[in-house]
């Protein structure tokens, strides 16, 4: 089987696999946010940036190649990842103490695991309204990290196209594909993949808030670096202990 080197470890891969797919399948974690094993890579968050033969590249879009030398767990790359997490916190309103997603949030869990201790940047404190129009689903735009997972899930899995990203650069934002712009005027259902897949606290199911107490949630039990390996699709012989 073909293989490449990740931080000195030999990683086997199958043709067509990306570096992150092969790494996770072999039990090696590379930090990531917009990458999701069930969806085509988007390559926008840059958390999974590695050095491949010395060049910085997103591991989620990089096809695995035999003999490639990949560096990921370096102080330089983890410093850059911490900065990216700080920038995501700065450009939204991520107020963890009042967020239902706390403990289940991928952005927060990345901050914990990478050891992000400070705000780093002056926060934008944007005025973003929430959309509570839907009877079963709350939409809180304050926490969006533009990972596009809900857009991808609604199109590819639910076949509905409820969400889109509009605008460019700093103006980029999540919008609802309805003339009114309101979630109530779409055919989204609480059972949709788009609802489940949000890694942060934007798309929330109503009336289940805090059913699982803070302290007993997904990333309370184990850090995201361990949880991501648990979640990664892999062959039984690669099962991570």
């Amino acid at each position: 089987m073909n293989s490449f080197l990740l931080d000195g470890a030999e990683i086997p891969f199958e043709p067509g696999q990306t570096v992150i797919q092969a790494a996770l399948a072999a039990g090696h974690y590379i930090p990531h946010l917009c990458y999701h094993p069930e969806f085509v890579p988007h390559g926008s968050c840059k958390l999974c940036t590695v050095r491949a033969d010395g060049r910085p590249t997103a591991a989620c879009t990089l096809p695995a190649q035999a003999g490639l030398k990949v560096e990921s767990e370096t102080e330089e790359l983890n410093d850059l990842r911490r900065t990216l997490v700080q920038m995501l916190f700065a450009e939204g309103n991520h107020f963890c103490p009042s967020c239902e997603k706390s403990g289940n949030c991928v952005l927060q869990a990345l901050g914990y695991d990478l050891g992000v201790m400070t705000a780093g940047f002056r926060h934008f404190f944007l005025d973003r309204p929430v959309d509570a129009s839907h009877p079963d689903i709350l939409l809180d735009f304050n926490r969006c990290v533009l990972c596009k997972l809900c857009v991808r899930a609604s199109e590819e899995v639910d076949g509905k196209g409820v969400f889109s990203l509009a605008g460019r650069g700093i103006q980029r934002r999540l919008i609802v594909s309805a003339e009114s712009g309101r979630l109530a005027d779409t055919d989204i259902a609480v059972t949709d993949k788009a609802v489940e897949v949000c890694p942060v606290g934007v798309i929330l199911r109503k009336r289940v808030g805090f059913r699982v107490p803070i302290g007993r949630r997904r990333f309370d039990a184990r850090p995201i670096s361990a949880q991501a390996l648990e979640d990664a699709p892999r062959k039984p012989e690669h099962k991570h202990e």
Binding site: F89, N93, F95, C96, P97, S98, M117, T118, A119, H123, F125, L126, D127
Partner: peptide
């Protein structure tokens, strides 16, 4: 040492910052 969310990020009182 900055102790807690408010010292580190502004925290709850900073939720007035957009007003």
């Amino acid at each position: 040492v900055a102790l807690g969310a408010c010292a580190v990020t502004g925290g709850l009182p900073a939720q007035r910052n957009h007003l």
